[in-house]
């Protein structure tokens, strides 16, 4: 479960997020939508502290995962990131074999047991619906896969270290419609075991995959409710305008 309380976030002097409080429950899919630069990706990256890589940032408020403040002193960021996996906008497999890509997370976390690694790689590839396509070429370079396959490999890579939360930052925006459909199907299946938060530009996608949707604009959370309600009967006029395509 993820919960934020009155989060303000700054890049230098620029305030990217304004007073955001929201709650994402276990084993649900939450989608963030909104125009470019609205802060939805910044917000997503708070949960695995990916924003830490950017110099001169500043956070106010609280960000809790399973009740624990992840920005509290003494929190090990590496440990946090094992629990909170991430899939990026563009597929970014490592220049290693398919097998080694999935095994990477296990290896850097100190796993040496060969049998366990093999088993976990297979499970993860199966969970990412990629096993059937790659099982005969695990030792081939990940770069030989198509863009859609690479993205599912990145999902498998994230799943291998058994996170409880998976963050997805526009995971299908660089993919063709068929690959996109596969990823969406996958998100649906993954919900059983993982809490998923997805940022997307594609409103149909948000409507198809998510249980709840948050609409962001200019750093503010304008509306946050059940996806069905949001797309059929939004409360705010801005939301209505955005989802009907009047701006954005």
């Amino acid at each position: 479960m993820i919960e934020t309380k009155k989060v303000d976030f700054f890049y230098g002097d620029f305030q990217a997020l304004k007073n955001i409080s929201m709650r994402m429950d276990k084993n649900t899919v939450t989608a963030f939508i909104g125009p470019s630069g609205c802060g939805k990706s910044t917000f997503l990256r708070l949960f695995n502290r990916m924003n830490d890589l950017i110099p001169d940032i500043h956070l106010k408020g609280e960000c809790l995962i399973d009740g624990q403040d992840i920005y509290a002193r003494g929190v090990e960021v590496d440990e946090l990131r094992k629990k909170v996996g991430m899939v990026f906008q563009k597929p970014n497999p490592f220049p290693k074999s398919i097998f080694e890509n999935v095994a990477y997370g296990l290896r850097v976390n100190g796993m040496r047991d060969k049998n366990f690694i093999e088993q976990r790689v297979e499970e993860s590839l199966q969970s990412a619906a990629l096993w059937g396509e790659v099982k005969d070429k695990l030792r081939k370079s990940a770069f030989e896969l198509s863009g859609g396959q690479q993205q599912r490999l990145c999902i498998a890579r994230a799943l291998a270290i058994s996170p409880s939360i998976v963050l997805m930052d526009e995971p299908a925006s660089a993919l063709d419609p068929i690959s996109t459909a596969k990823i969406e199907e996958l998100i649906h299946d993954l919900k059983k075991h993982y809490t998923i938060v997805i940022v997307t530009h594609n409103m149909q996608q948000a409507a198809r995959v998510s249980d709840k949707t948050g609409f962001f604009m200019l750093g503010e959370l304008i509306e946050f409710s059940d996806t069905k309600k949001m797309f059929i009967n939004p409360e705010k006029e801005q939301t209505q305008n955005y989802i009907t395509g009047r701006f954005g």
Partner: peptide, 21 residues
């Protein structure tokens, strides 16, 4: 590219592991 570093760090790798591997 920065994306490879992010990918590795997001898997809980340390900076040293990311640099080395």
């Amino acid at each position: 590219p920065q994306s490879f570093r992010s990918g590795s760090l997001a898997l809980g790798a340390t900076k040293l592991q990311t640099t080395r591997k």
